[in-house]
Amino acid sequence: MIKTLINPFDNLTDNQLFFLGFAGYFVHSIFSNQWNYIADGIIQLHQISSMPLGYSLVNNAINTLVLTLVLFIYGKIIFSKTRFIDVLNVVWFAQLTQVFLAIILFNPFVQKHTAHIQIAIENHDFQLKTVPKYELVLMGGMGILALFGIFYFFYLLVTGMKIAMNIKKKTFTILLIVITLLVDAVLKFSYPYIL
Rank of each mutant, 00 (worst) to 15 (best):
I2C: 00
K3G: 00
K3P: 04
T4Y: 01
L5S: 04
I6N: 01
N7C: 05
L12S: 05
Q16M: 08
F22I: 15
H28D: 07
H28G: 13
S29P: 06
S32T: 11
I38K: 12
Q44A: 09
Q44K: 15
H46G: 08
I48Q: 01
S50D: 10
M51P: 03
P52V: 09
Y55A: 04
V58C: 00
N60E: 06
A61M: 14
I62F: 02
T64N: 04
L67W: 06
V70A: 09
V70E: 06
I73M: 06
Y74P: 11
Y74L: 07
F79L: 02
R83Y: 04
F84Y: 14
L88H: 07
L88Q: 03
F93K: 07
F93P: 07
F93R: 09
L96Q: 03
Q98E: 03
Q98A: 05
Q98R: 03
I103D: 01
L105M: 14
L105Y: 08
F106M: 02
N107T: 01
F109A: 12
F109N: 08
F109V: 14
V110N: 08
V110A: 13
K112P: 00
H116A: 13
I119C: 00
A120N: 05
E122D: 12
E122R: 08
H124Y: 12
F126W: 10
F126D: 01
F126M: 07
Q127A: 13
Q127M: 13
Q127I: 06
Q127H: 10
T130F: 04
V131W: 07
P132Y: 01
P132G: 06
Y134T: 09
E135Y: 11
V137P: 00
G140T: 11
G141Y: 09
G143N: 14
I144Y: 06
L145D: 00
I150Y: 06
F151T: 11
Y152V: 07
Y152T: 04
L157K: 06
V158N: 10
G160C: 04
G160V: 08
I163P: 00
A164N: 07
M165I: 00
M165C: 15
N166H: 15
L175K: 07
L175T: 12
V178D: 02
F189E: 11
Y191D: 15
